[in-house]
């Protein structure tokens, strides 16, 4: 069964890279570039895994995550959090907000594939 991965990332080049890597690995990948309508996108796509950028235009990824975790439909959704800030306190904040895993940019492709496989397998 192919896993459905939703990628919410405002940088088009990064989104393209991840889409390519995961598609090549056998996932079905949808991408979404906005921040404000991200939650609605998640509900519409009903993915097996969400890859969420921390800094989105107009809204914080942490807020989106908190909204998702508060909703019974999405509270158990595996979420891989990405951030370009990479500071420890961002990691802590993401974990508090309920991120399943946290990765800082830049990442190696192998890393992200391993994380996605791991999270989907759970």
């Amino acid at each position: 069964m192919t896993a459905h991965v939703l990628l919410i990332e405002d940088e088009p080049n990064i989104a393209e890279a991840i889409r390519f890597i995961l598609t090549r690995d056998g996932c079905r990948v949808s991408t979404h570039g906005g921040g404000v309508d991200a939650v609605a996108a998640v509900h519409a796509a009903r993915p097996d895994l969400l890859i969420l950028d921390l800094m989105l235009p107009g809204v914080s990824g942490l807020d989106i995550l908190a909204t998702l975790r508060a909703d019974p439909a999405t509270e158990a959704l595996p979420v891989l959090m990405l951030t370009a800030k990479g500071q420890d306190r961002d990691r802590e904040a993401a974990e508090r907000a309920g991120a399943s895993r946290f990765m800082s940019k830049p990442f190696s492709n192998a890393e992200i594939i391993a994380s996605v496989r791991d999270l989907v397998a759970r």
Partner: peptide, 12 residues
């Protein structure tokens, strides 16, 4: 980090 992410991912 943002441009570096793209550069690293696409170079790989």
């Amino acid at each position: 980090r943002t441009p570096m992410t793209s550069i690293r991912a696409f170079s790989e």
